[in-house]
C-alpha cells in the first residue's frame, strides 16, 4: 500500500459564509420577528385586558398585596388626600372603582395609578404642592388614567416584556438589552394617554372648584425647577412635565370657557 501525503482541505468543515453576514441576518431577522411578536402580543393583551370589565378588575385587585410596596400605613396625611380623591371621584359617578390612596416614603415627587383603584402618592409630592387645586389636578390626572384604563394597558405591556425578557435571557445571550429597552418602553404611559388624563383631571378640577385657577401651578414649578432640582426628576421621568402640557390645559380651559380666575383653596390642615 502506498502512502500519499495530502494536506487537509479547507472549507469542508468550516462554512465559507462571512460571520458578519450571519450576524446581520440573525440580528435583523430575529429583531424584526420579535418586534412583530411583541407588538402583536401587546395588542392582544390590550384587547383581552380591556375586555375585562373594570368591576372585575376592581374585585381582583382589591386585595392587592401592599407588603411589596413600601407604604406608610398610618400616616396622618392619608386621610385628607383620600378625602380629596373621593370628592373628585364624585364627579365621575359611573366609576367602577373604589379609590384608595396610599402614601409612599421618599423626597421625590411622584404619583402612580395602579390596578384596582390604588393611587400611590409620595411624601415628596405632598411636600411640594401648595394649594388643594394643584393636588386636585395631580389626583384628577391619575383618575384620568383609571378612566381610560391606561394602568391596565401598562400592566399588559409590562407582563409581556417581563415574560419575553425571561424567555430570551434564559436561553440566549445574557445581554441586558431586553431589560433596558423594556424599561424604556414601559416607563411612562404614552404621550397621548398623559394628555387625555390631564384633560380629565382638569375637568374634575373645574367640576369641583368651579374654576381652574392655579391648577397647573405645580407643573409650572416643575418646569421652572427641572434644571436644578432632582427631587422633581422622578415625576418628570414618568410624566411629561413640559410647556406643551400646560399649553394644552390652558387651551382646553379656554375652549370650554372654564374660568381662569378664582381663589385657590388652601391645603387641608393635615397637609400644610
Amino acid at each position: 500500500m502506498r502512502f500519499t501525503p495530502r494536506l487537509p482541505r479547507d472549507g469542508i468543515n468550516v462554512s465559507q459564509e462571512h460571520p458578519l453576514k450571519e450576524a446581520t441576518v440573525l440580528i435583523v431577522g430575529l429583531g424584526a420577528v420579535f418586534a412583530l411578536l411583541f407588538i402583536l402580543l401587546v395588542w392582544l393583551v390590550d384587547i383581552v385586558l380591556l375586555l375585562v370589565p373594570a368591576e372585575a378588575e376592581a374585585r381582583v385587585f382589591s386585595s392587592w398585596d401592599l407588603s411589596s410596596l413600601e407604604v406608610l400605613s398610618d400616616d396622618s396625611r392619608q386621610a385628607p388626600v383620600q378625602e380629596l380623591v373621593e370628592r373628585l371621584a364624585a364627579h365621575w359617578p359611573e366609576s367602577p372603582y373604589e379609590f384608595r390612596v396610599e402614601i409612599m416614603p421618599g423626597d421625590e415627587a411622584n404619583a402612580m395609578a395602579l390596578p384596582g383603584g390604588l393611587i400611590l402618592v409620595t411624601e415628596g409630592l405632598l411636600d411640594q404642592v401648595e394649594t388643594e387645586n394643584e393636588l386636585a389636578l395631580v389626583m384628577g390626572h391619575e383618575l384620568g388614567h383609571f378612566k381610560h384604563r391606561d394602568h391596565i394597558r401598562r400592566l399588559g405591556r409590562v407582563t409581556v416584556l417581563t415574560i419575553g425578557a425571561a424567555v430570551v435571557s434564559s436561553s440566549a445571550a445574557r445581554v441586558s438589552l431586553a431589560d433596558t429597552v423594556g424599561n424604556l418602553a414601559t416607563r411612562s404611559f404614552g404621550r397621548d394617554d398623559e394628555r387625555e388624563a390631564d384633560r380629565f383631571g382638569l375637568e374634575l378640577v373645574q367640576a369641583e372648584f368651579g374654576h381652574v385657577a392655579g391648577a397647573w401651578k405645580f407643573f409650572e414649578r416643575l418646569d421652572a425647577s427641572a434644571l436644578g432640582i432632582d427631587r422633581v426628576a422622578a415625576y418628570l421621568s414618568t410624566h411629561p412635565g413640559n410647556r406643551d402640557r400646560i399649553d394644552d390645559l390652558r387651551a382646553l380651559a379656554a375652549a370650554r370657557g372654564w374660568p381662569l380666575d378664582g381663589e385657590p383653596v388652601s391645603l387641608a390642615l393635615g397637609l400644610r
Binding site: V14, E22, L26, S171
Partner: peptide, 29 residues
C-alpha cells in the same frame, strides 16, 4: 464573546452553528 452571541441567537432558531465551526476546525487541526 462575538461567537457566543451569534451562537446564542442561532440557538433560538436552530441550524448550522457556523460561528463555532472555524474554532473547532482549528482545534482539531
Amino acid at each position: 464573546y462575538f461567537k457566543r452571541f451569534i451562537a446564542a441567537l442561532r440557538a433560538l432558531v436552530g441550524g448550522r452553528v457556523k460561528s463555532y465551526e472555524p474554532l473547532l476546525d482549528r482545534a482539531r487541526r
